[in-house]
Design a binder for these strands. Structure first.
Lengths: 209, 209
DNA sequence: CAATATACTGAACATTTGTTCAAAAATCAA
DNA sequence: TTGATTTTTGAACAAATGTTCAGTATATTG
């Protein structure tokens, strides 16, 4: 059970939340001081320490604006949330433009991942149907995991995104569907028209849509 | 009209947006440098200046993490988390005992549900494989939704839990697998050995276990 | 072509920001 | 009351972060 906050601690905690919402970033210690007319930075600093001790925020030392507000007020277990963008436009030659037109974000319990995911994408075809990955599913992609033959990956071909099985043989990359109705795609390593976004680490399907 | 960005400027701009979404604060100049393997902080700094000049961001001098993205939509809606129990023992005659021996809990972003879910359960067989529900998946169950013929449900038969398609005809309940290797189960309505836990509203699958 | 913008390096410097130490007063619970 | 926690001050220090200067190189544009 989380310990209750004192009046002052709550004032400062509320200010931090408000500031973060309004400014898209947490305040610095001195900004807190200014708000509450503190003459010493330690006034705010010690309250931050108390908030951290009581589990309301998390911080890492020596970083500017490093207040992370814990979202779960009623939880005993410290749950870390990972917020990831849901991408909807693709460009193999400019993968980063994907993050311009977002379809919102998805928050996921970080503890269900071994390594943090990078982004989410909606599955657009039934090419991996036999693997149980269906059109309309949300695939969570891990951008940094090492690709092995057999990995299920998210690949962008020109302006289209696909989920396929990955195979690299003799500097040729094969994108293999599990469903016979779809063809195997073959690329030379380094082909500018192909970008492998990463490995699929999680599938989420909402039923009854 | 905003001037177009160069490739590099766009890469960095997109990184800033992604970072901000994920971390609820903009990156520092040195964090940008690290991402792009810049040896000089001025590499990132000068791009920031260019982005500002072209009207994509705004900055205030000498402040840490002082990047404000213009016209950027932040999803600041307070995410409500729903914590649901992951059940692992079943008893059709005493359904509530399921919640005594929990296998932990799962927290999910409430906004992805139309109606709040009741509990989660691990799928124990491949009886619904053709529906893309595989052994080992986590099924999120909605206890209160109305059952229709064709609904995918979680059913407890004696001490076993199953995911099946539901059909009620002439006061007989049929539990129908999608996979031929499994048989159709038939029960009289009111049979104490059968308890329908609810409708499956979400499927979560972790890959690479 | 010349001028301008872009893309980087490297090193210093200035400012902001976080941290620590010492201390005192106020508040609160046992 | 006593002791622990909280609240605040003040000063100094350490680390992070932003800024500037000088220089190289390439591409772009009028």
């Amino acid at each position: 059970m989380k310990r209750a906050l004192t009046k002052r601690q709550n004032q400062i905690f509320e200010f931090i939340k408000k500031y973060t919402i309004e400014n898209h970033k947490p305040p610095t210690i001195r900004e807190i001081c200014k708000k509450f007319n503190f003459r010493s930075t330690n006034s705010a600093y010690s309250v931050l320490k108390a908030l951290e001790k009581k589990g309301y925020i998390q911080r890492t030392n020596l970083k500017a604006r490093n207040i992370n507000i814990n979202n779960f007020k009623f939880d005993r277990t410290q749950t870390e949330l990972k917020e990831i963008p849901l991408v909807s436009t693709f460009d193999a030659q400019n993968p980063l433009t994907m993050f311009t037109n977002l379809n919102g974000t998805i928050k996921l319990d970080a503890k269900i991942f071994d390594t943090p995911p990078s982004f989410a994408v909606e599955v657009t075809d039934d090419g991996m149907q036999k693997e149980g990955i269906l059109k309309g599913d949300i695939a969570i992609i891990n951008q940094n995991s090492e690709l092995k033959n057999g990995s299920i990956v998210f690949a962008v071909i020109k302006n289209e995104g696909l989920i396929r099985q990955y195979k690299n043989e003799n500097n040729e990359i094969y994108l293999i569907p599990s469903n016979r109705g779809y063809g195997v795609l073959k690329f030379k390593e380094g082909d500018k028209n192909l970008w492998i976004g990463g490995e699929v680490s999680l599938i989420i399907r909402k039923l009854n849509r």
